[in-house]
Simulated scan of single mutants.
Amino acid sequence: MARQIKPAEQRRGELLDSAQALFFERGYDKTTVNDLIQHAGLSKGGFYHHFSSKEEVLEALVERLASASMAELKDVLEGPDLDALTRLNTFLSRARQMKVEQVPQMRGLFETLFQPGNQVLYHRINAASMAVVSPLLARIIEQGRQEDRFDVPDAHMAAETILHLGAATYRSVAKAMNAAGTDEADSAADELEQVLRFQGVVVDRILGLADGSVDYVEAGFARAIIDGLAEPRN
Results as ranks from 00 to 15, higher is better:
Ala185Lys: 11
Asp183Thr: 07
Phe150Gly: 03
Val201Leu: 15
Gly108Thr: 06
Ala95Met: 15
Asp190Glu: 15
Ala71Gly: 03
Val100Met: 07
Ile225Tyr: 05
Ile37Asp: 02
Ala95Asn: 15
His123Leu: 14
Leu207Tyr: 06
Ala230Arg: 08
Leu209Ala: 03
Arg149Glu: 06
Met98Tyr: 09
Val132Gln: 15
Gln4Phe: 11
Ala179Ile: 07
Arg94Ala: 11
Glu184Cys: 01
Ala188Ile: 07
Val195Arg: 05
Glu59Trp: 02
Phe91His: 04
His50Arg: 03
Ile162Thr: 05
Ser52Leu: 03
Glu231Gln: 15
Ala19Cys: 04
Ala180Ser: 12
Glu56Asp: 08
Leu137Lys: 02
Ala127Gly: 04
Phe198Met: 14
Val57Arg: 02
Val173His: 06
Asn234Gly: 13
Glu78Gly: 01
His164Gln: 13
Ala176Leu: 15
Val133His: 09
Leu137Pro: 00
Glu111Asn: 12
Leu192Glu: 02
Leu163Ile: 13
Gly208Lys: 05
Ala138His: 08
Gly212Asp: 01
Glu25Asp: 15
Leu209Met: 04
Thr90Cys: 07
Arg107Ile: 07
Ile206His: 05
Gln105Arg: 13
Leu207Thr: 02
Gly41Tyr: 11
Pro116Ala: 00
Gln115Val: 01
Glu231Thr: 11
Leu163Phe: 11
Thr31Val: 13
Arg107Met: 06
Arg223Leu: 14
Asn234Ser: 13
Ala158Phe: 09
Val133Ser: 04
Asp83Ile: 10
Arg197Ile: 10
Ser53Asp: 01
Gln146Cys: 04
Arg94Phe: 08
Ala84Arg: 02
Asn89Met: 05
Glu101Tyr: 00
Leu22Tyr: 08
Ser52Cys: 03
Gln105Lys: 10
His49Lys: 10
Arg124Ile: 01
Ala158Ile: 08
Ala138Lys: 04
Ser129Val: 08
Gln97Met: 11
Gln194Arg: 15
